[in-house]
């Protein structure tokens, strides 16, 4: 698991200090924090709460409410499988099952070596290419279960 570095906290602190007012900016700050740390562990939530003068409970309440925020670190390559309706109708579930089987992890989990994680996402809006899988920023369209091995192969070592 990646360690939380001091310079990361410094970067976040600078971002918060540069705001003219922090009123109502909790979500914006959390977006930034997740961009810096990759996820939002307890320590980061506590830090944000202190800097914005709100309770940690409130920060946790917001983090846990929104699906964009994650409290567990994602893998080096996050595999986002679109589970929107269009992809579902065209067989996304089978693709998801194939990834789970290949990597031996569940949705929301990360492989032990920290290489891959699987998340289900709601509609990336490329319904013409359904079913769609994103690995990092790269989009794979019209994915079938037997393409899964080849896709993973691209990212090994």
């Amino acid at each position: 698991m990646a360690e939380l570095k001091n310079e990361q906290f410094n970067e976040l602190e600078q971002f918060i200090d540069s705001m003219s007012s922090t009123k109502g900016e909790l979500i914006r700050v959390l977006h930034k924090a997740q961009e810096i740390f990759g996820y939002l562990p307890k320590e980061v939530q506590k830090f944000v709460a202190k800097k914005l003068h709100v309770s940690t409970a409130k920060v946790f309440g917001v983090v846990s409410f929104y699906s964009f925020f994650t409290m567990t670190p994602r893998g080096e390559h996050n595999i986002a499988i679109c589970l929107g309706t269009a992809c579902y109708v065209r067989g996304a579930e089978k693709v998801l099952d194939a990834f789970k089987r290949e990597l031996n992890i569940n949705t929301g989990e990360t492989t032990k070596d920290g290489k891959f994680s699987i998340t289900g996402v709601r509609c990336v809006g490329a319904c013409g290419l359904a079913p769609v899988v994103m690995v990092g920023e790269k989009v794979y369209g019209r994915v079938t279960p037997d393409m899964v091995k080849d896709i993973l192969e691209e990212y090994k070592d």
């Binding site: 900016e25 409410f65 929104y66 699906s67 964009f68 709601r122």
Partner: peptide
């Protein structure tokens, strides 16, 4: 611009407004 963070209920206007204020939507 204000960024959402992935919550379907925020399409409802009162939820959306709470979310814009940095709260749970």
């Amino acid at each position: 611009l204000t960024y959402g963070a992935g919550a379907f209920v925020c399409g409802e206007e009162t939820s959306l407004i709470h979310s814009m204020e940095g709260e749970r939507g």
